[in-house]
Amino acid sequence: MRRRFVIGKILGALSTLVFVVVFNFFLFRVVNDDPINSMFRGRNLTPEQLDRLRVKFNLDGTKWEQFVAYVRQLLHGDLGYSLKSSRPVSTVIAEAIWPTILLVGTSTLLAMLGIALGYRAGWRRGSTFDATATSVSMLTYSMPEYWIGMVALGVFAAGLGWFPVGGLNDPGSTLTGLERILDQLHHMILPATVLAVAYIGEYMIVARSAMIDTSREDYLQLARAKGLREADVRKRHAQPNALLPVVSLSAINFGFVLSGAIAVESIFSWPGIGQQTQFAIAGPDFPMLQGLFLLISAAVILANLAADLLYGYLDPRVAGR
């Protein structure tokens, strides 16, 4: 039963991924039939030159031929060339992905502090702690991240000058080794905090309501009647069950770690996936967008698969044991 559960989930994730590949390919063909023509409209290019560009960007032949070629390239890890920079999409993504994982990953982990806050608030529902934590969470949850970002930039970077205004390093920086890393951390503090503040409310609210639901369960009464300390009742019987909605939420958010944070990366000129997405949309740079969409979809699918498998582990009823 258990193996069947795992295999079923993996097959499900793979089939979703295949669907995404197909959809992702045809979506961009429907949106724009001949991007070469629209990109170079008004420029002095001969039809032969245009045709050569079409071959380079894999836009010649029938849709089916294009698709087969696309899948073949994909299997070799080749995502085509960016229309804008003419560099391979995979190279651009590879450069942008680490800054993004660093920034968004750190802030997502920071935001998970909200889970602990939510548990505490939900367990002592109606306490001063609960009232304070809930209203602060609602406040930060309702503030858009670009707004928090602009305010933080204005106050702490431009105004007080505590932090640099943007980038991963100062332009023309010659620092190396540990100093370089510390400098990058210094650059990261502001955007990471902004993102964490924007995310923490969601975790807190979800964790709190999960804990409130769980705290009404009869099995906690039994745990108390057995003579367990309140802390043990919470740790052993309540928290693991209140974890399920939180796991789903975290999975979705971890999936989006790779998509970067378009608004915050743009505000802080952070050279990550979010910034690349913004550039590609502005282009529009179709091969780039296509590559980014595939990356984001794959990340979300993988994160959900991880959540499904974790679910099966946390709740024996899910895996059909």
Partner: peptide, 13 residues
């Protein structure tokens, strides 16, 4: 306690 289906913690054996 009362409530057969609800009194045992579901994730613990």
């Amino acid at each position: 306690p009362q409530g057969v289906a609800l009194s045992l913690t579901p994730h613990r054996d």
